[in-house]
Design a protein around this nucleic acid. Structure first.
Lengths: 244, 244
DNA sequence: AAATGTGATCTAGATCACATTT
DNA sequence: AAATGTGATCTAGATCACATTT
């Protein structure tokens, strides 16, 4: 899984490192702010890492050891109360940046929802690069604002929507985020279990199940083998989710 | 209310403008990133503005005409669905920065919850200053991350807490934010009506009322004249709110 | 066997209808 | 008179208990 070469002659090279040229995250990701020289510099300490579905990327309260870009897969961010109640507070997709800049320890748990590939950077080097590169901080700022917009949108879903609307909103979110190259994917595999979906929507597993069945019976979606979803009509799904 | 003088001789002055020296927002606010020269520059176009409680600062979908720093008062940020359901997605207190950088139009409504004083900056000039001043963008980035942390914390409240815990969490939030100079204020006036509190917590007015009464009967809080709250024991309030 | 679906029953919070307070 | 409080009733979603599917 670690197919990456860490050697790159410093010299007069002005092409980006091979790994970076091939990287899916470069287009929309934070690395787009970096010059070839900076990519070479960052690439010297970066490693490609794999997380199996279900494995923990970082735990609530743990020290931040590094940051990363998601190359492939879905990561869930969650918070837990003392008594075990859990809320998923966000999902991250390629080419999102992962990690909370400027904080020593994580205030949430990040867990691979599917198999996940990331390009990981050690903390110190990356933070130095950020402080030296205003364009990079600008990119990170933009992503933080995007995540803030999404979190607030989801607060409306959590606070004011019915169970039916919540489930439809979730399916709409997945359809619009699962493939970075398409604005809406009509066909996809759910990256989360019913239990995770419940934790994301503030519902129980049973309610999620029933609402899925209802959306299926109303022909808003087709489900095959539990995880595979087909959305025949994007507009109907938006309506069902109360998405404006 | 507009007691501000806009004149400041450019010359060799290296002291911050008088208005800025007296400004409460300077200490923790984004202006702290600016040099005296930059403060003088920004101050040339900034105006102190007042909003009466209940008046709209900016509406969902409106063009961003400027940004501002809250000097005094509480601003509520809300989102509304097509059918009128409303969710308050955040509260802002002095010395918070208001406005969504880098977006042409607002994706939410900002409304003065109490009487509010702000220091307002026209959009274009401020954006130029941001692009020229990495420290200022860093400050804005930090505030965006702080708001993101708070939004996610609130998602846990909205998705997983009981009505009782929600109301206690709200009171705790106010007690810890209403006075920027104190970590916890034992005595305060509620900046929101019961209707607004309901919209913030994803509850109805009646449920908020009943839970307030319950917290009162359990001696977690004392309420005088509807709006005035006394918290005898910070720990008990945290417990009631499931705050960790 | 672990995840998902579904029926029966329960209950927290919504809804409806007023009373009370500021 | 507008905001708040509270009783009576209702209901969406939770809980409990299994059946079914992968």
């Amino acid at each position: 899984m670690d197919t990456q070469s860490k050697s790159n002659i410093t010299a007069v090279s002005d092409a980006p490192p091979t790994v970076c040229s091939a990287c899916e995250a470069r287009h929309g990701g934070v690395c787009a702010a970096l010059s070839s020289a900076q990519l070479i510099e960052l690439n010297r300490t970066s490693t490609k890492r794999h997380f199996d579905a279900g494995s923990e990327v970082i735990g609530q309260g743990e020290q931040t050891v590094g940051y990363s870009n998601i190359l492939h897969g879905v990561v869930k961010l969650s918070k837990m109360m003392a008594d075990g109640r859990q809320q998923i507070v966000g999902l991250q997709f390629a080419p999102d940046f992962m990690g909370r800049p400027f904080l020593k320890e994580s205030n949430l748990t990040a867990e691979a929802a599917t198999n996940v590939e990331v390009c990981a950077f050690p903390r110190v080097g990356f933070e130095r690069l950020v402080s030296e590169t205003p364009d990079l901080e600008h990119k990170l700022h933009q992503q933080a604002l995007k995540e803030l917009d999404e979190a607030r949108e989801w607060m409306l879903t959590l606070g004011r929507k019915t169970a039916q609307e919540k489930v439809a909103s979730f399916l709409y979110l997945i359809a619009t985020h699962i493939d970075p190259t398409q604005p809406f994917k009509k066909t996809f595999d759910l990256p989360l279990s019913r239990a995770d979906i419940a934790d994301f929507l503030g519902l129980t597993i049973e309610t999620v199940s029933r609402q899925m069945t209802k959306l299926r019976k109303e022909n808003v979606i087709v489900i095959e083998n539990n995880r595979h979803v087909i959305v025949p009509d994007q507009r109907r799904l938006r309506m069902a989710g109360g998405v404006d």
